[in-house]
Design a protein around this nucleic acid. Sequence first.
DNA 1: GAAGAAACAATCAGGGCTGCCGGTAAACTT
DNA 2: AAGTTTACCGGCAGCCCTGATTGTTTCTTC
Lengths: 199, 199
Amino acid sequence: MTRPRLTQQERTERTRELLLDATIDCLVELGYARTSTNEICRRAGVSRGAQQHHFATKAELMAHAIEHLVTKLLARMSEQPPASLPGPDRVAMGIDLLWQGYSGSLSTAVMELWVAARTDPELRAAMHPIDKALARRTSELFRDMLGDQVTPDQRDLPLWLTVNLIRGLALDAMIGGDPARQDQLLQEWKTIAVKTYGA
Amino acid sequence: MTRPRLTQQERTERTRELLLDATIDCLVELGYARTSTNEICRRAGVSRGAQQHHFATKAELMAHAIEHLVTKLLARMSEQPPASLPGPDRVAMGIDLLWQGYSGSLSTAVMELWVAARTDPELRAAMHPIDKALARRTSELFRDMLGDQVTPDQRDLPLWLTVNLIRGLALDAMIGGDPARQDQLLQEWKTIAVKTYGA
DNA sequence: GAAGAAACAATCAGGGCTGCCGGTAAACTT
DNA sequence: AAGTTTACCGGCAGCCCTGATTGTTTCTTC
């Protein structure tokens, strides 16, 4: 027969995961301002006592949610085969990869946290190292993808140009901009980038 | 002798302006989540009763704040002489103009409202027409600046590419990114844009 | 198997925020 | 000049949210 109840460690891990996932859900669906610990517990199917046992304060919960979020985001982006591709298509493919990574619901949650962190010192302190890690991993991912054929300067400039453009487009998508328009702009940028950087 | 009390219309106008300015102040300094009607009244030096008289609900106050904000933003951007400039420098100058318009504290307030509006239907409905107006005015500003030498397609694509990039950079600036880096990226984009679009 | 630790449940108190209401005085109207 | 409308004031009640506390069940360890 199966154990009627999981071991402590499994229970802990499961409950924490449930809470963090529910937190991200709330961020995406309700936004930071309307995300309450109550609602998080409700969605996670966990009592408020349990939540407090694992994450004493709301800020602590958020801080761990950020980490959880970026971990998921990086995992999703690393799924793609980072094989060093040949030809100028590398650039276009890299842009598509970034678009996949830096848009969508996970990125929406990150955006909520960023904006909230601007005026919340505690949250800001928690986010800072994680942001840096995300930036470093993204850069590494591209180094692996493009190979060592290009110098760091030739790589980072287009990379961050693309990331910032995509963040602008993701913002536009968040507030209900026209997806076709976003795509059109991304295509245009791809054309330009290939012409400019696609040696 | 001066009138001991202003006329009703003057009083109304003054109080509403005080409230709307205070609202924007709060958005920039505290963020949407921590902006309370209490704090707005405190900063405006207005009683809560007066605030409620002019804007019955918080959402109504925010909706008017958006309009106030975009009006200010457009005014600031229109200050620049929209003279039709010659040469390829037009493009570079246009990018600078957009950077001035779409970054800074006013843009921060807009960002707060956008993110809040994503999950607040009422706010969203209030913002939508104003966003469209901002987009149209921006486009018109550029038509005046570039003259009719370029077709709408040649104009709008680089325009919105630039705007979205700048929004990404503004977001980066909001959360404490390196200003030098932002400038470097903007310069790079300027170079590319001039080469691509600066006929 | 008994004691202690850990996970979880349920409820409470404190605090802030929003919206509403009755009241006052000045400005407009006729 | 009386009446009406408008701007404004300050307090109150209801709501939700957060953090704390106490009690219960289950696992671990000796």
